[in-house]
Amino acid sequence: MNVVLDRVSVVVGGRTVVHEASLRVESGRFLGLVGPNGSGKSTLLRALYRVLRPHSGTVRLAGDDAWRLPPREVARRVAVLTQESGADFDLDVIDVVLLGRLPHHGGFGGDSDRDLALVTRALERVGATALADRPFAALSGGERQRVLLARALVQESQVLVLDEPTNHLDIAFQLELMRLVGGLGVTTVAALHDLNLAAAHCDVIAVLRDGRVTAFGPPEDVLTPEVIHDVFGVRAHLLRHPVDGRPLIAFSDDAPVVPPHQEHIP
């Protein structure tokens, strides 16, 4: 299922956070959104999973306007790993994962054998089978992320949206998660902070700055020292990975005294 954003602008609290962003991801490809804090990555994703309605422009899922489809239909097409963990009430892990079946049922009906089979397989896939009967609130950050990924998997969607999925994860699970997601074969859109992770796993990269898409293309075309310096204000050096030859970015801290695009965080 392809995802197309056509000149999407999003206004939050009277401020335009995303300006006319246009992006296109083909079926089964992995798009990474990179950019400094506050550049509009999360906001752009929210317009895609129907939390923030675009002020103008359209979000299309396989050609259909996501904001004209019923919410439940969008939930069948797009699964999301948000940054939200929300847990004053305890649901058990298995119940959290079963929530992923909500777009397919709704209501009071019990869980079908197929639901449970999907949950079993998803928990195996993310290596969290042993956590099934634990309270979700008692899990560590990394364990939670595994469980939330399992929930996204049982949603059986053709599009996966990830908002900074590797935050707070140890390096082994960061790599495991990216490999897992890459192996699903679904269209993926992820906001990422780690440029090397993005370079290694994404098919296409969009660079955001002040809510605008300033570069869009394959990692090797987009993640150049010039672009990185321009957008992040740090000096970058392009190396090659000693094993697989993928581009590897090193940073040095001899940055200019005043970064060209300093952020204003209120």
Binding site: R50, V51, P70, E73, R76, V78, T82, E84, S85
Partner: peptide, 10 residues
Amino acid sequence: AGDETATALG
């Protein structure tokens, strides 16, 4: 689970 998660679940 939170407003965003619930929205994302339809």
